[in-house]
Simulated assay, not measured.
Amino acid sequence: MINLKRFFRLSKNSERLDKYLSTSLKIIANRYRSIDPDTRLQWQKLSRKIEEESVLGTERQVSLKGLFSKPAVSVAVACLLLLVIAMIWLSNFSVKSYMTGKGEHSIVRLTDGTEVTLNCASKLEVTGILPGKSRKVLLAGEAFFNVKKNGKPFMVVTDVGVVKVLGTKFNVRARGNKMEVGVVEGQVEVVAKSKEKETKTLLSAGEIVICRKDGCMDLPKPIPFSEYPGWTQGKFVFYKTEFLSVCEELKLKFDVDVRLENLRLQELTITGVVNGKTIEEALTTLTQLIGAKYRHEAGGFVIY
């Protein structure tokens, strides 16, 4: 008969248990050979079934051992490593966009340590910035850059041209058909591009230049204001800026409509610093500079 104590002791080892049960069943079958033939047949079938299960159990153990063998684990680790590398590669080469609305400012810190302060109604697109590689961003609007030095060039691309640096502080304003670049610290290369023409110049700290979409560029000039770029300090700093563009800046800053009733004012250019805490304060200073007046109307202001 089957020894129950031994049965439970062997239950932890499936291979030895199968062997024990098979032997026990054979003993039982020999003792009861005189029983009905159909019953003996059933015992034989049961014995074969146990032997088959024993073989299958051994195959399962071999299969599991193969699954967790050293070569299999190495392949799994390699696949996981490749997946992580692919995710990092895709994240670096994906384009990230940062935008500000009217009246908003935003600070963007890039992965290389560069800090970009976006002025209102501006957009910055950052492509992959990888260690040891050139760095490039796309700008529409205005931003102040504090570029971290790492030995590789940093490029700001606009619709008008390109600004290329290694590590410096500078401001780029690209609205409409013009790009204004002013350098606070270090040196930058400015390129004005069009299909027909390309103009280059080097700007040092304290210099400013204006580029146009036709590829032309003014000669670099000294920045006449210590507050430059101004907007980071809540002020407007205008350098040879058309008055119509000045009104556009007021619209973007305060999110109100500013309209010129006297169209001759469009031909004026403004150079100076204007406090910009409120729209009324800015308009008062500007209209005094050009000898004009302004009034408040529903939805905005009119300069006449």
Rank of each mutant, 00 (worst) to 15 (best):
G300N: 01
V237S: 03
R295A: 06
I223A: 09
L219K: 15
E280M: 03
R259C: 02
P220R: 15
V258N: 00
V273H: 03
D257F: 00
P220S: 13
V237A: 07
E242S: 15
T285Y: 04
K235R: 14
F225Q: 03
G276Q: 07
L250K: 11
D218G: 08
A298V: 09
K277E: 15
K235M: 07
F225P: 08
L263R: 12
V256G: 03
I290H: 01
R264V: 04
S226M: 08
R212S: 13
E297V: 13
T284F: 09
E281N: 09
K240P: 02
E280L: 09
L283P: 11
G291T: 15
H296L: 07
S245G: 07
H296G: 07
K253W: 15
P224S: 06
G230Y: 08
Q233R: 15
T241N: 00
L289I: 14
T278R: 05
K277N: 14
P224I: 12
E261P: 01
P222M: 03
E297T: 10
I270F: 10
T278P: 02
R259W: 05
P220K: 14
L265P: 06
F243A: 08
I270R: 00
Q266G: 00
G291P: 09
I223G: 04
D214V: 13
L219A: 14
S226D: 12
L244T: 13
F254Y: 13
L265H: 08
F236Y: 12
V246W: 02
P222E: 06
I279E: 07
V273P: 01
V246D: 01
K213C: 02
K277S: 12
M217R: 09
E267N: 14
V246Y: 01
D214P: 13
K213V: 13
T269V: 12
K253Q: 14
K240R: 15
E249F: 11
D214I: 12
D214A: 06
T241W: 00
I223L: 11
L219Q: 13
D218R: 13
G272S: 08
L286Q: 05
P224H: 11
P222W: 04
G276T: 11
P222C: 04
S226Q: 15
Q288R: 14
D255W: 06
W231L: 02
V246E: 01
G300Y: 02
G234L: 08
L244G: 12
L286A: 07
T241P: 00
Y228Q: 04
F236E: 02
M217F: 03
E242A: 12
G300W: 02
V258R: 08
D257S: 12
Y239R: 10
E280A: 11
R259E: 11
V274L: 02
V256F: 06
V246N: 03
T271E: 00
E280V: 15
F254C: 02
R259S: 10
G276H: 09
W231F: 04
R212C: 05
E248C: 10
K253E: 09
R212L: 04
A282T: 13
K253P: 04
K293W: 00
Q288Y: 05
L263W: 00
S245N: 10
E267D: 08
M217C: 04
E281R: 13
P229Y: 08
R264Y: 01
I279L: 08
E297K: 14
G215H: 04
D218Q: 13
D257H: 06
Y294M: 06
E249K: 15
G230E: 04
E280Q: 13
